Amino acid sequence: MRYEGYSKTHESIVSYKWKNTSSTETGVSDKPTMVEWIDNKKGDAYVGSGASRVDVGTVHPDAGRPYLRTYADGKWNNNLLSLPTF
Results as ranks from 00 to 15, higher is better:
residue 64 G to M: 01
residue 8 K to D: 06
residue 86 F to C: 12
residue 55 D to I: 08
residue 55 D to T: 13
residue 65 R to K: 15
residue 79 N to Q: 14
residue 13 I to V: 09
residue 10 H to E: 05
residue 11 E to G: 13
residue 47 V to N: 04
residue 68 L to I: 03
residue 67 Y to S: 02
residue 29 S to G: 08
residue 43 G to T: 02
residue 69 R to H: 11
residue 78 N to Q: 09
residue 35 V to C: 04
residue 36 E to K: 15
residue 46 Y to F: 13
residue 12 S to L: 03
residue 15 S to L: 05
residue 53 R to P: 03
residue 17 K to D: 15
residue 76 W to T: 13
residue 31 K to I: 05
residue 19 K to A: 11
residue 57 G to L: 09
residue 35 V to E: 06
residue 23 S to K: 04
residue 73 D to G: 10
residue 53 R to A: 09
residue 16 Y to D: 01
residue 23 S to R: 03
residue 59 V to N: 06
residue 25 E to Q: 15
residue 19 K to L: 14
residue 20 N to G: 05
residue 58 T to P: 01
residue 40 N to L: 11
residue 74 G to P: 01
residue 33 T to K: 12
residue 50 G to A: 03
residue 47 V to A: 07
residue 41 K to T: 14
residue 86 F to W: 13
residue 61 P to C: 00
residue 74 G to T: 01
residue 80 L to F: 00
residue 32 P to V: 04
residue 24 T to K: 14
residue 42 K to A: 15
residue 7 S to W: 10
residue 72 A to G: 12
residue 26 T to Y: 03
residue 14 V to C: 10
residue 59 V to F: 07
residue 38 I to P: 04
residue 49 S to E: 13
residue 18 W to H: 05
residue 63 A to N: 12
residue 62 D to Y: 08
residue 21 T to E: 13
residue 38 I to E: 07
residue 52 S to I: 05
residue 15 S to H: 03
residue 12 S to T: 13
residue 78 N to A: 06
residue 8 K to G: 00
residue 55 D to S: 14
residue 49 S to C: 07
residue 57 G to P: 02
residue 25 E to L: 12
residue 13 I to S: 02
residue 56 V to N: 02
residue 58 T to W: 00
residue 12 S to F: 02
residue 45 A to K: 08
residue 17 K to M: 13
residue 32 P to S: 07
residue 23 S to P: 03
residue 33 T to M: 05
residue 27 G to D: 01
residue 62 D to S: 13
residue 72 A to D: 09
residue 30 D to G: 06
residue 6 Y to T: 15
residue 10 H to K: 06
residue 81 L to R: 00
residue 71 Y to G: 07
residue 38 I to M: 09
residue 25 E to D: 15
residue 60 H to W: 00
residue 15 S to M: 03
residue 21 T to Q: 09
residue 23 S to H: 05
residue 86 F to K: 09
residue 13 I to R: 02
residue 43 G to W: 02
residue 48 G to V: 04
residue 66 P to S: 02
residue 20 N to W: 02
